[in-house]
């Protein structure tokens, strides 16, 4: 078993946190991802793509909730292709799914406590950091997560992943279905998490304009195939259309 996140140093920007090589994955006999290769450094790496492109499948595979058909996944130089989901989390991979992202029967505080089951840092210290990132949660900790709005649920899910003290955060369309106000706020928060906490972010999005605004690099996923990652500043409308195969 590879060493835990708490024992490993923080990577510099150029070092790969995640290395994906010739990755194929899917559901049973249905292959969704075809031969994907890219790496995520200490950056905000955004994957754009339409519905059905394979974004959720990719993140579920990286969180080891779906099996790898072929290819490999590396985490900070260690091959974790066949690690279990809980082992991946212990290494420092935080996953925030798009749907069913909170435990509805638990309160907000309990959701955050569940996130803090691993890691060596003091719970109160992690909790305070989450409250600084999501101040709205501070006064609502005793509320059932099942009664929260979409935006509040995303905050709780994201906060729970941060309680794990991750080295890379996998965010699956975190702004899908949110009001424009929340969308703006959430993108700012994602950027802040990366800059202040030194956490690499792998973000999937459909909202290309907003996502490109905070991304360092970007890749377009179309029908399970990925374009060559480029700097976000270089992703022009034409290149985007080409990558989307429009």
């Amino acid at each position: 078993m590879p060493e835990t996140a708490a024992e490993t140093p923080t990577p510099t920007t150029a070092e790969a946190v995640l290395t994906i090589s010739n990755l194929c994955s899917g559901y049973g006999s249905v292959q969704v991802l075809h031969d994907l290769s890219f790496e995520v450094r200490n950056e905000i790496f955004t994957i754009l793509g339409a519905n059905g492109a394979g974004k959720t499948t990719l993140l579920r595979t990286l969180a080891h909730l779906l099996p790898v058909t072929s290819g490999s996944i590396g985490f900070r130089g260690t091959d974790v292709t066949h690690a279990a989901a809980h082992e991946t989390a212990r290494l420092g991979v935080g996953y925030v799914p798009q749907e069913a992202a909170v435990f509805p029967d638990l309160t907000i505080l309990e959701n955050l406590q569940v996130g803090a089951m691993i890691g060596d840092r003091a719970f109160d210290e992690c909790l305070e950091e989450v409250f600084q990132t999501f101040p709205d949660l501070r006064s609502k900790t005793h509320l059932r997560a099942g009664n929260l709005s979409g935006g509040e649920s995303r905050m709780v899910a994201c906060g729970r992943a941060l309680m794990q003290d991750p080295k890379v955060l996998l965010l699956d369309e975190p702004t899908a279905g949110l009001s424009p106000l929340y969308v703006e706020q959430f993108f700012e928060t994602i950027e802040s998490i990366h800059r202040t906490r030194n956490v690499a972010v792998l973000l999937t999005e459909q909202n290309a304009t907003k996502a490109l605004g905070i991304a360092d690099r970007v890749m377009v996923l179309s029908l399970g195939e990925g374009s060559t990652p480029v700097d976000a500043a270089e992703m022009t409308k034409e290149r985007l259309k080409e990558a989307y195969k429009l």
Binding site: F103, L106, R160
Partner: peptide
């Protein structure tokens, strides 16, 4: 904490697995 883990597992097992337990 064990009870919260059990509730998490019962409610959404894949999500619980992604939390390190």
């Amino acid at each position: 904490p064990y009870g919260r883990l059990l509730i998490a597992v019962g409610t959404n097992e894949p999500l619980a697995r992604s939390l390190g337990k």
